[in-house]
């Protein structure tokens, strides 16, 4: 390993999510190199960086799609390296995708209810038997789905197909579906992508609200710096698969490396 020194993020010991020296290579491409981060419970933090920096790959590693060649990941004190995505979800980690992954022909409510599945108690074979317990739970799931739809302002569209919704609404629906799995940690991959400034501002407020309401820890990816600054308490900056800076928004904003490598001229002007 390189001589990289572990940074000292806030509240290292009580971290809900901890990644240490994670390296993920695809053939010759090193998408993530020697990345370490610690996310304390209850925080809202962000990963920023230009396109192709490896942000989504970090999420894919955290949520179990790839097993990193090197490094260790712990969630709530237990190692999750090499675990299947569905097991990691059961442990309390949910995520959304940069390119929306909904079932376009299914309704809003049905999409959310898919997220409810992991927490249900009655097994499948109770359905054909028509056991009352199964149908009671089924009704509970539907109610839970309705509540979540209301929370993301989709109550009016419950029975519309997901594919017919406008882009922003689809993003909110994906968040609702992730919340239905009752996560403790929510990973949001570019939640504001494709939104106008007004919409992304609202979204960031919304993210702050759900953190408090559902007692969540949130890690989000954004490539637009301005969006994250308002909502994130801590930020990691990636470039070419490696961390180049981290800290509170103020620290990151004024980091010369970040300004030169990523933010470009306009932010420097803004700060002046």
């Amino acid at each position: 390993m390189s001589g990289f020194v572990l940074p000292t993020p806030p509240d290292y010991a009580g971290a809900l999510l901890l990644a240490r020296n994670v390296t993920m290579r695809f053939g010759g491409v090193t998408a993530v190199s020697d990345l370490s981060l610690a996310l304390p419970a209850g925080a809202i933090a962000g990963i920023i960086g230009p396109n192709g920096a490896g942000k989504t790959t970090v999420f894919n590693v955290l949520s179990g799609f790839y097993t990193p060649q090197e490094g260790e990941i712990t969630f709530d004190g237990a190692s999750i390296r090499g675990k299947e995505p569905n097991d990691i979800c059961r442990l309390g980690m949910a995520r959304t995708f940069q390119n929306i992954r909904l079932s376009p022909q299914m309704t809003v409510l049905e999409n959310i209810m898919v997220g409810c599945h992991v927490r249900r108690h009655c097994p499948w074979w109770m359905a054909p038997l028509g056991l009352p317990r199964f149908y009671r739970e089924e009704e509970e799931l539907r109610e839970k789905g309705r509540r979540l739809a209301e929370r993301v302002h989709l109550s009016e569209q419950l029975d519309e197909t997901a594919g017919s919704l406008p882009y922003g609404a689809q993003r909110r629906l994906e968040i609702a579906r992730a919340l239905a799995t009752e996560p403790r940690l929510l990973l949001l991959d570019e939640p504001a992508a494709g939104m106008n400034p007004q919409e992304s501002l609202e979204l960031m407020h919304f993210i702050g609200h759900i953190r408090d309401e559902f007692a969540l820890t949130i890690l989000l990816i954004e490539h637009d710096m301005k969006v994250v600054m308002g909502v994130c308490e801590y930020i990691w900056v990636m470039e070419y698969g490696a961390l180049i800076a981290e800290g509170t928004p103020d620290v990151v904003r004024n980091d010369p490396l970040v300004i030169r490598a990523y933010l470009g001229e306009d932010v420097v002007v803004q700060n002046a």
Partner: peptide, 21 residues
Amino acid sequence: NFGNVLRCIRDNEIAASVMGI
């Protein structure tokens, strides 16, 4: 909801596994 789960698998396996399925 079992049917919803199957249809989600049909439409997007990756999303299904991330939903804990």
